[in-house]
Nucleic acid binder design. Sequence first.
DNA 1: GCCGTTTTCGGCCCGACTGTTTTCAGTCG
Length: 582
Amino acid sequence: MKNTIDNRQVARLLEETADLMEIDGADSFRVRSYRRAAETAQQTTVELAATETAELLAIPGIGKGMAANIRAITETGTFPQREELLARYGAGLLELLKLPGMGPKTVALLWDAAKVATIDQLAAAIAEGRLNGLPRMGEKQIAKLSKGIEDYRRGAGRFRIDAAEQEAARLVAYLSSFDGIDRVTPAGSLRRGRETVGDLDLLATGPACEPGSTEAAVEHVAAYADIRDIIAKGENKISFHTREGLQVDVRLLPGSSYGAALQYFTGSKAHNVALRQRALKMGLTLSEWSLARLDDESVVAAATEEEIYAALDLKWIPPEMRESLGEIELAARGELPLLIGLNDLRGDLHMHTTASDGRNSIREMAEAAVARGLGYIAITDHTKALAMANGLDEKRALEHMARIREVDSEMEGRIRVFAGIEVDIMGDGSLDLDDEVLAQLDVVIASVHSRFEQPREEMTARVIRAIENPNVDILGHPTGRLLLRREPYDLDMGAVIRRAAELGVALEMNAAPERLDLCDRDLRLAKELGAKVVISTDAHSIAGVGRMEYGVSQLRRAWLSAGDVLNTREAEGFVAGLRRRA
DNA sequence: GCCGTTTTCGGCCCGACTGTTTTCAGTCG
């Protein structure tokens, strides 16, 4: 693997520069062009470092200036504009922007007036009362910042599952390319499907990983191009940070204890403790090396997880369930639920097109869904309250609906295309589209978009009023949670889920990795109360259609089966009901 | 900074909401 700058690093540098430019008060359209270029770098399939300048210029959104910037980045790792801004402001300001309520103007204000350049300095400035009296810095604003700092520090260091998985995939490919490494498996919270991971655990096995002969393999790991610094390097383990800041632990293991190690490093800690207690009661001891007899230390099982669980009189437990929430008892009784899998899903009920803020047409989305083997989709563009997303008003919504129905018939039964919409829940709980229009659509998703701090009771009442509208079928991102950035809305999800169950309104598990709105606790409650759940992608382009793997992990973590989810093979009656308004 | 021209500069997604304003700036989506 060559030591080159890849597209996502180009994207990150452009994005950071856009942030700094905003703090610097640069022209907003100029800033937007940097953001657009960053997005393009992220999305494009061509490798920018290996692309001629003439070809760069052919990419929409990349002109002369940006092509020069990209060239500089791929050749030198940075570019003049960024260096200039970093020299003036420092990188700490970029972190400040991550606090909720902190935008470029506030960062600039705090920098100018209080010389605040990092989160630590902000915390100190608040403690010393140096923010008091600054423009737009009232009591509430300062309290909000304090809470933001607290939340940020708690979430710091965790990475979203999709980012961790992409890094894992790159590392697996790199490690597997080494002669003598046969198999590489991610363990830890990534394998358990958690929405964020603290560090990446990779287990490698093969001839080069056997005790006493690991030196060459360790050196191979240490030569990985994306390493920022090496934390520790031993005979069987090497730990490092990637350039993105993710900590990675690679362990080289003998094949004979691969199962024990995989079990041990997958966790969770609580599950492992419970499992070891069970082993002890059976006269066995479980470690990362093996399951062995207590009396004569003879190995009972070690090579595969299945053998280990079987030797403990347990069915193999899916990693997503390993949180010590009763799964061991169920496995002992042979009563583990059959968890939902990707293959159970039949339809994707939430997606956007060029009519609002999507990047592809209805037809293109439908074809992408056919390619992914789906039986039906619903097109659900935004409504007018999301003006920035070019949301639809009543007139456009009806025209769009007619066009969706045309495409549905053009597809000639290869797939069903339903006409839906994603309405915005307003501050008072009303929906931002007339009921007469909503009543003509097949699927109505109600979502909270604008973020503001309402007291818990009002927020809850607002969402409940919205789903009481008889036209609403699905409650979309109800918590508005964006991982690593902010807390969920202060919302009584228990009350919302209870009401949704009574009304028959389904709860959406938004599978987009930056969303994953419903946490496993919410999903468990939904199952308990008999509330319907759907999983969908919120796809904004053909790349996102049907990509539900991260969301499915969350459903599995909540022990849901295909029968608990509406858009599966088990619930075809649901589809029949969708066309009620046609 | 990009684009598309009405070829050489002007347009480029804007509405809801909060807090601190006494009429609106800043953030978010």
